[in-house]
Simulated assay, not measured.
Amino acid sequence: MNGPVVVGVDGSASSLAAVETAAREARLRGAGLRVVHAFVWPGMHVPVDPSPLGPPEGEIRKVVERLVGEAMARARSTAPDVDVAHAVVMGEPVTVLEAQSRDAQLVVVGSRGKGGFVGLLVGSTAVHLAAHSTCPLLVVRGVADDTGPVLLGVDGSATGEQAVSFAFAEASLRKAPLTAVHAWTRWNAALPAPQDAAEPYANPPGRLAEQEERLLAEALAGHRERSPDVAVQHRVVHGGTREALIEASRGAQLLVVGARGRGGFTGLLLGSVSQAVLHHAHCPVAVVRGAEGEH
């Protein structure tokens, strides 16, 4: 897609950090940047413009303009060569940004915004968009190591194919290596066909591990051929997926996961692994939904 990179801003420190990341992402892609602020007047449907219910000079509009102006200035100082536009839209942030994602190639948000509940590690806007955004969502959290790899969580599912493509593209844009991690346990691995009819549930030692190694290699094969400039490291981990990805995110510049993967419950739009890394990863997280209709 050739649309802009969209970043949601609310004046919080988290959203300003997201603006800087979004500006860099737009520069990498040769795309424009759209700074979006969703405006809701608590308890009243009052327009941003001057109205009989507010000061004649439109104090609300001044606050919004200052907020958006600061974000645009931050974007231009980060990436002076990027074309920066803005939009102030009446509506709830999740609704506005979901609509904005329809013509964007990437939506960027901070992990927490203004009004977040104390104790929550990631805001409701980020979680909602991870499940509903039409394009990939980048949630800025933790500390990105610009010298580290792009980290990809692979589970071999059809819905995860888009995440694999996105991760290779990101690694190519950043001129970074790609570390592909596949974690498995005896409880989530698909059992191979038994070799001995007398022991239908027995498998030779190491056979499950070999199967999971093959699953990872097959998930990456075509992408490696299409992106020969990306150095790829395979990492198959016998253990929990959430724990493996969170630990591997130390020292990474970006973690990429699918919105839902193998073993997810039908009807859920965001899987437990995606939610876990949104809350606990040590670097920014990109959540990529499958193709339209793959829920």
Rank of each mutant, 00 (worst) to 15 (best):
H238D: 03
S272M: 05
G160H: 00
K62T: 11
G156N: 09
G58V: 06
T266P: 07
S124H: 13
M72N: 03
L191H: 08
G11D: 10
L191P: 10
R66F: 05
A180C: 01
G54D: 10
R186W: 08
D155L: 06
E243N: 12
G54T: 15
V257A: 00
I246H: 08
R76C: 07
G58D: 08
L255N: 11
V107Q: 02
L208W: 07
A219E: 02
L191F: 14
A286K: 04
A158K: 11
G264R: 05
S12W: 05
V127F: 04
G264K: 04
A130F: 03
E170T: 09
D146L: 07
A13G: 12
A190S: 13
V143Y: 07
M1L: 12
R34Y: 03
A259D: 00
L208K: 10
R250M: 10
D229S: 15
T134R: 15
V108D: 05
L254S: 04
E213W: 08
G222C: 14
V6M: 06
R224P: 12
H238Y: 07
S274Q: 00
E247T: 12
E57L: 11
C135H: 02
G258L: 01
P47E: 07
L215D: 03
L151A: 11
V109A: 01
A22Q: 08
E59V: 14
R224D: 06
V273A: 13
V150F: 02
T179N: 12
H223P: 04
Q162L: 03
S272F: 04
G258E: 00
A291F: 09
A99Y: 00
A169M: 05
R27T: 03
V154P: 03
A171Q: 11
K175Y: 02
P52R: 14
W187S: 15
H45S: 14
P194M: 01
R260I: 00
L269V: 11
S172A: 15
G119V: 01
V48K: 09
Q275M: 13
N203Q: 10
V236H: 07
A22R: 12
P228S: 02
L28H: 14
S157G: 06
D83F: 08
V7W: 08
G116C: 15
V84Q: 08
R186D: 13
L178I: 14
L208Q: 04
L208T: 09
L208G: 02
H282R: 07
T147I: 05
A87V: 08
L270T: 01
P194L: 01
H128F: 15
A198E: 13
S77F: 02
L33T: 03
R174A: 09
A79K: 13
R76Q: 12
R74F: 04
E218D: 15
R235P: 05
G142F: 02
H182S: 09
G148H: 03
V82I: 07
A18Q: 11
V107G: 04
L215C: 11
M72V: 15
V122A: 05
E20W: 02
V122H: 06
A276H: 02
L53M: 06
V285G: 09
F265R: 13
A126G: 06
T134S: 13
A26D: 10
M72Y: 07
A197Y: 11
G263W: 01
P284V: 07
V150W: 01
H282Q: 13
V7K: 13
V181I: 15
S274V: 00
M44S: 10
P204K: 14
R29A: 13
D103G: 14
R214Q: 12
H86C: 06
G115I: 01
V181W: 01
G206S: 13
